[in-house]
Write a protein that binds this DNA or RNA. Structure first.
Length: 648
RNA sequence: GCCUGGGUAGCUUAGUGGUAAAGCGCGUCCUUGGUAAGGACGAGACCCCGGAUUCAAAUUCCGGCCUAGGCUCCA
């Protein structure tokens, strides 16, 4: 091999084409190699997927290279990375003896971690101002390649940077610095050309963060910020945040009196008020109908079991820390973190023939999981929640058909609420029980169902339950946020743990397969998502108050009552506004309360026996025939349509 | 669990050492008014809990409870 050849390496471009370049060429060099226009536009790049500065050299043969330009999606991340540097620079200008940790770009902004920095939210405006003046100064971003020794020298008073440096020293004898003005940071880039390229910034919040995310390490001060190309993009981002805040289920739940979580009753333990429970009852009824149609049988299990059961199921070994445990006499008991062992115990109480299978049990089972206090949040993370649980005990050759039926049910649920979804296959996690062989069998069974359906899905390695792989549904709400929802989980393990069996055609004992499934996931999480998705404007079938009758004067009150009585007899949740407010005030109140339909009755309506119907979307029709409206309500409810559509 | 905020009337919040405020909601009365806030009056607060400082604490300090956001998409 000649000297000439060993200095050349091949890099692979995103379209799969290969390019021969000199070993040690920078990203920028390679971009110029491809074309001078691209070279000029280069802001940074990826080496084997790792986002780095355009100055960094490519040394490995066969490296996958991607060029990031101002037009790339990543450009925003490049700019935010520089914004993070600007934050650190501003903080060091304003505060002495601050230790710097790391400061990357994130999905919607950036952060920088500091130690020895004592600030609170009131200090943020001053830091923003300093950042803005650094942007104003339009400092050129400079790159330097520095030997480990020199870097050690430069970073002598930066303990965290030194720690990082020692790690990099094991791999390379040089490191990279990116600077702006008289400030520089150990960093692999990428960055924009100068601080003036940063369009619009804002700092969002202060949070604690463990050094390297490890709770054994010291807690640092993290400042979160975001940066956009211009003010209007920034404003749009802030507007979206405000919108999400407006939809917050805790706020709406309070306004609509749906639920509460109170100090005196305990953290993470939601109390459902009548309005909230009305919605939950409708949700329960919906899955109950689906379950009964699909030949599920309802069972009920207590909230507490002896821990012997959890030891048998394997939960105790894996999840004892997350369980509420207590002693009664010499026995240890625990609140159930899952419903499956109870259902397995019911199954095990009878002898089964292959002719009986599949057995399908359903229960709205309340479970208790002791999440870390700081993780609790509204209805999305709680200690007590209810799963619309179902457990099937099937023969191996029934898996495919049963999983498919479950997926039909799940899809019907998601489509009813108008939710788009994605599907993922989650495979064996690190903490798990069961043999390799069993896991392989289970994973390939789910794969073949997914393949048969021609559903697009992603594979999430290591995300499965400890007892088996699963298919997870993730859906998107009205403002584009993703939520975890329904799951189908295969379990070859628990039947083993509980020694479950049925008698086969051959008169031998066989091991059934268990399938765990939930259509909503947990009621709490699904309810929360629905509140935020609909912004409290629930579909008619869910709305706690479906119709409000507004009499114009006291003279119309009796007629209003008779209209309400008729609706009530039809099973409609109806109220009459008997306040002595004026009509406009009553309309305003009904609108604030998000009532789908308002019926306004005055002298005109009383005379000709009609209704004036108004909906939540501020549409109105006079002289409506009551029978026609009642029939419409009936069908809108029964078909679970998501918007009031009588006035369409 | 840890970090930074926050906890004042049913709700949303103002008040930062000297007699606890406002809006909404609620009650009573006036108003009987046809499409997004008519008017008057009134009730409603162990200012999260415990301790300390002080002549005096909602306010300052210490401890606790609850709550919001955050706790490696690695230089």
């Amino acid at each position: 091999m000649s000297q000439q050849e060993s200095d050349q390496i091949v890099v692979v471009l995103p379209d799969g084409s290969e390019l021969e370049v000199e070993r040690g060429s920078s990203i920028e060099d390679i971009a110029y190699e491809i074309g001078p226009g691209l070279g000029d536009a280069t802001a940074g790049g990826r080496i084997d997927g790792d986002l780095v500065g355009k100055e960094l050299a490519v040394t490995t043969d066969g490296a996958e290279i991607e060029i990031v330009t101002e037009d790339s999606e990543e450009y925003l991340g490049v700019m935010r990375h520089t914004a993070a540097h600007t934050l650190a620079q501003a903080v060091q200008r304003l505060y002495d003896d601050v230790d710097l940790a790391i400061g990357p770009a994130t999905d919607d902004g950036f952060y920088y971690d500091f130690d020895e920095l004592d600030v609170d939210e009131d200090d943020l405006p001053a830091i923003v101002e300093e950042m803005e003046s650094i942007i104003e100064e339009d400092l050129e971003v400079t790159y330097e390649r520095v030997s480990i020794e020199e870097a050690r020298d430069r970073l002598a008073d930066q303990p965290y940077k030194l720690e990082l440096l020692e790690e990099f020293a094991e791999e390379d004898d040089t490191v990279h610095f990116y600077g702006q003005g008289d400030w520089a940071d150990l960093c692999k880039g990428p960055h924009v050309e100068s601080t003036g390229e940063i369009g619009a910034i804002d700092l969002l919040e202060i949070a604690g963060a463990y050094w390297r995310g490890d709770e054994e390490n010291e807690m640092q001060t993290r400042i979160y910020g975001t940066a956009f190309r211009d003010d209007s993009d920034l404003e749009e981002f802030l507007e979206r945040r405000r919108e999400a805040e407006e939809r917050d289920h805790r706020k709406i739940g309070n306004e609509m009196d749906l639920f509460s979580i109170q100090d005196r009753t305990g953290p993470g333990l939601p109390l459902y008020h009548p309005n909230g429970k009305t919605i939950l009852r409708e949700l329960e009824g919906f899955v109950e109908d689906l379950n009964l149609d699909a030949d599920y049988e309802y069972v009920e299990t207590p909230h507490v079991f002896k821990t012997d059961l959890w030891k048998e199921s394997g939960h105790y070994d894996n999840y004892a820390d997350d369980m509420f445990l207590f002693e009664v006499g010499d026995d240890e008991f625990g609140l159930k973190p899952m419903n499956c062992p109870g259902h397995a115990a019911i199954f095990d109480d009878s002898a089964w023939s292959y002719r009986d299978l599949p057995i399908r049990y359903a229960e709205n089972g309340k479970v208790y999981r002791k999440e870390q206090r700081g993780e609790l949040s509204g209805l999305s993370r709680v200690w007590a929640f209810t799963i619309d649980d179902g457990h099937l005990f099937v023969k191996p050759d029934q898996i495919q058909a049963e999983v498919e039926r479950i997926m039909d049910m799940i899809q019907e649920v998601l489509e009813t609420f108008g939710l788009d979804y994605e599907v993922a296959l989650a495979t064996r996690p690190e903490k798990s029980v069961g043999s390799d062989e069993i896991w392989e069998k289970a994973e390939s069974a789910l794969e073949s169902v997914l393949d048969d359906r021609k559903l697009e899905y992603t594979v999430e390695d290591g995300d499965g339950a400890f007892y088996g792989p699963k298919i997870d549904y993730e859906f998107e709400d009205a403002i584009g946020r993703s939520w975890d929802g329904p799951t189908v989980q295969l379990d070859f393990t628990m039947p083993e743990q509980f020694d479950l069996s049925y008698v086969g055609e051959d008169n031998e004992e066989h091991r059934p397969v268990m399938i765990h499934r939930a259509l909503y996931g947990s009621y709490e999480r699904f309810f929360m998502m629905l509140i935020e998705h609909f912004e409290g404007k629930f579909p008619l079938w869910l709305a706690p108050e479906q119709v409000r009758v507004l009499p114009i004067t006291d003279d119309n009150a009796d007629y209003a009552e008779s209209v309400a009585e008729e609706l009530d007899a039809d099973g409609v949740r109806v109220e009459v506004d008997q306040s002595d407010n004026r009509l406009q005030r009553k309309i305003r109140a009904a609108h604030d309360d998000r009532v789908p339909y308002q019926i306004i009755v005055g002298d005109d309506e009383m005379e000709d026996g009609t209704l004036s119907v108004r909906d939540r979307k501020e549409r109105q029709e006079h002289g409506v025939d009551p029978e026609e409206f009642y029939a419409h309500l009936e069908s809108e409810r029964a078909e679970k349509r998501t918007e009031p559509d009588f006035l369409d």
